[in-house]
């Protein structure tokens, strides 16, 4: 092994201080993108190796989390998306059709405070999120789970802020319809419609 250079020392310290503490959040995101522990491991490892190679382009003390999430998301799009084993997809058009046909007003009818939802286990909710199309799943994970701002999300996935907002809206509506389907299958009666 070569003697540590100043540059290496700087990078190693940067990783210890700013990047390694974020590994759990990165892994969680990677797992929900790939649905697979092995792919998530590879994706996180790739992310750190790429971050190491391009560390000079990171401005110290700025948003390390958004910077690493962007690298991970790009690595996923470029290398993993095609090969990731996706579970049976919910037909997105089908969900929208369902919504139009029954005139479900999600906010008015899908009340997650109801015991049927509170009794749902994590696996069922995770399955619902995982069956969202990846673009919709990504914004939900970044906003609701990782608490990024719309501006950060826009930078991470390279879309305008307005698109972040509309995509989040759409993702939430689809998710509510899916949760409502689940609830109905468990005997939950909606008021009205």
């Amino acid at each position: 092994m070569a003697q540590p250079t100043d540059k290496k020392k700087w990078k190693d310290e940067l990783f210890e201080r700013e990047f390694y503490p974020l590994i759990d959040a990165l892994y969680n995101f990677a797992y929900h993108l790939t649905y697979n522990e092995e792919d998530a491991n590879d994706l996180v490892q790739d992310t750190y190796l790429k971050a190491y190679r391009f560390a000079e382009s990171y401005e110290e003390g700025t948003n390390a989390k958004a910077w690493l999430f962007k690298i991970l998301k790009n690595a996923f799009i470029n290398e993993y998306r095609r090969k990731s084993k996706q579970p049976a997809k919910v037909d997105y058009e089908d969900v929208i059709g369902y919504q139009d046909a029954e005139d479900v007003s999600p906010a008015g009818t899908v009340d997650l405070r109801h015991e049927i939802f509170q009794g749902m286990i994590g696996d069922e909710v995770t399955r619902a999120i995982n069956s969202l199309p990846v673009d919709f799943r990504t914004v939900i994970l970044l906003c609701d789970i990782e608490r990024f701002t719309y501006e950060e999300i826009a930078k991470i996935i390279d879309i305008p802020i307005g698109t972040v907002r509309s995509r989040l809206h759409r993702a939430r509506e689809i998710l509510k319809v899916m949760l409502m389907r689940y609830a109905k299958s468990q005997g939950y009666k909606t008021d009205g419609k």
């Binding site: 969680n28 995770t126 789970i145």
Partner: peptide, 9 residues
């Protein structure tokens, strides 16, 4: 609900 229920890996 989403935050609470989604499995954390």
């Amino acid at each position: 609900f989403l935050c609470k229920k989604l499995n954390k890996k």
